[in-house]
Amino acid sequence: MTWVLLACAILAEVTATISLRLSEGFSKIAPSVVVVVGYLTAFTLLALVLKRGMAIGIAYGIWAAAGVALVALIGAAFLGDSLTPVQYGGLALVAVGVVALEAGGAH
Rank of each mutant, 00 (worst) to 15 (best):
A12H: 00
S23C: 10
T2H: 01
L11Y: 08
L46Q: 09
G67S: 07
V4Q: 01
A92E: 04
L101S: 00
K28F: 10
A9V: 05
G105W: 07
P85S: 10
I74L: 14
G53C: 10
P85A: 13
G61H: 12
F43C: 10
V49Q: 04
V4H: 03
L22S: 04
V86K: 04
G61R: 09
A59L: 05
S82K: 13
L6A: 04
L70Q: 08
A106M: 13
E24C: 01
G105I: 09
V86M: 05
L11V: 11
H107N: 06
I58R: 06
V37T: 09
A47H: 14
W3P: 04
A106K: 15
A47Q: 13
I62A: 01
E102C: 03
S32Q: 12
A47L: 13
P85Q: 11
I62S: 01
E13R: 12
L48N: 02
S23Q: 09
L70R: 06
F26M: 13
E102V: 15
G67N: 06
G38H: 09
A47C: 00
P31G: 10
A42R: 02
A7V: 11
L46A: 06
L48K: 01
G97E: 11
V4R: 08
A55H: 09
L45C: 03
G75Q: 08
R52M: 14
E102F: 09
S19G: 00
A47I: 13
V49H: 09
L48C: 04
A12P: 03
L50C: 00
L48E: 02
L45I: 07
G75H: 07
V34E: 02
E102L: 07
A72Y: 06
R52Y: 12
L11P: 05
Y88S: 06
V37A: 15
G104S: 13
A9Q: 02
V96R: 12
V99A: 14
V86H: 04
F43W: 11
A77G: 08
F78K: 07
A100R: 07
S82E: 10
L101G: 01
A7K: 05
V94R: 08
L40W: 10
D81P: 05
G25E: 04
V99M: 12
L6K: 10
S19K: 00
A76R: 09
T44N: 00
E24K: 15
I56E: 06
L79W: 07
V94Q: 03
E13V: 00
G80Q: 09
F26P: 14
Q87N: 03
M1T: 12
S27D: 08
E102N: 12
A47E: 03
I74M: 11
P31S: 15
H107C: 03
A92T: 11
V37L: 15
A30K: 15
G97V: 13
S27V: 13
I29K: 14
A77C: 04
T2M: 01
L73W: 10
A66Y: 03
V36S: 02
L40Y: 08
A69Y: 01
L20M: 12
L20T: 06
L6R: 03
V49E: 05
V94P: 01
V99Q: 06
A42I: 08
P85D: 07
G105M: 01
L79Y: 12
G105V: 07
